[in-house]
């Protein structure tokens, strides 16, 4: 049994969440980003990548070997905690409940994607407001642009990879088009340090 009092206490602590969104060409950027992490990470990181679906999650296995903090696949109802990296499984949308647990959802694809960055950015920003740090990197469609509007409106932080550094620039540049002002536009190597300012 799960200790409910423990969960309740955890819920009251404010927690900052980094939502890392990417698609085509994002995997190298993700690795580069995560390798900067040191022990005692003060935030939770949720990773959303457009991938082909399958039951075996090799990305989780691979990252667990590479990175010094715990990497977990998102399961329905998982309680988000700082110091952990969560990978959204392919084939599900991921949304956040009021009590900071993550839910999965099989509703229709958004922008031809499931998981869709639009869905997660909207839902995470609804529940986290200014505690959300959204990072949008390389990808070949405009998924994330609509979600970014919500992040901006709810005072979350928006960090976008410099489009010309991205393998596929559509995703970062469509965010820049959709939102009047993002917080940072930075090259790949500076993504982590820029985000870390808010940790």
């Amino acid at each position: 049994m799960v200790d409910l009092k423990y969960i309740e206490r955890k819920n009251r602590e404010p927690i900052k969440v980094v939502l890392f969104c990417g698609s085509s060409g994002a995997i190298n950027v993700l690795e580069n980003f995560l390798l900067n992490i040191e022990q005692g990470l003060k935030v939770a990181i949720v990773v959303l990548l457009h991938r082909k679906k399958g039951t075996q999650d090799y990305l989780v296995k691979y990252l667990n070997q590479k990175i010094c903090v715990k990497v977990l696949p998102v399961e329905h109802g998982i309680q988000i905690e700082k110091g952990i990296i969560y990978i959204i499984p392919a084939g599900y949308h991921c949304i956040m409940e009021k009590n900071r647990t993550l839910s999965l959802d099989l509703s229709e694809k958004v922008m031809f994607s499931r998981p869709s960055a639009d869905v997660s950015l909207e839902s995470f920003s609804f529940n986290l407001k200014e505690q959300l740090i959204a990072i949008i990197v390389s990808g070949a469609n405009a998924d994330g642009a609509n979600g970014a509007k919500w992040v901006a409106k709810r005072n979350g932080k928006l960090i976008v990879q410099t489009p010309k550094e991205a393998f596929a620039k559509t995703m970062p540049s469509s965010v820049l088009e959709a939102v009047d002002r993002v917080d940072h536009i930075v090259p790949t190597n500076e993504l982590y340090n820029t985000a870390a300012k808010y940790f």
Binding site: I95, M96, E97, K98, S103, D105, S107, V119, E122, S123, F126, N127
Partner: peptide
């Protein structure tokens, strides 16, 4: 029904 999922569906 789970709140967040329902909220999304209603918005849709």
């Amino acid at each position: 029904y789970a709140q967040e999922s329902l909220r999304r569906r209603v918005l849709r």
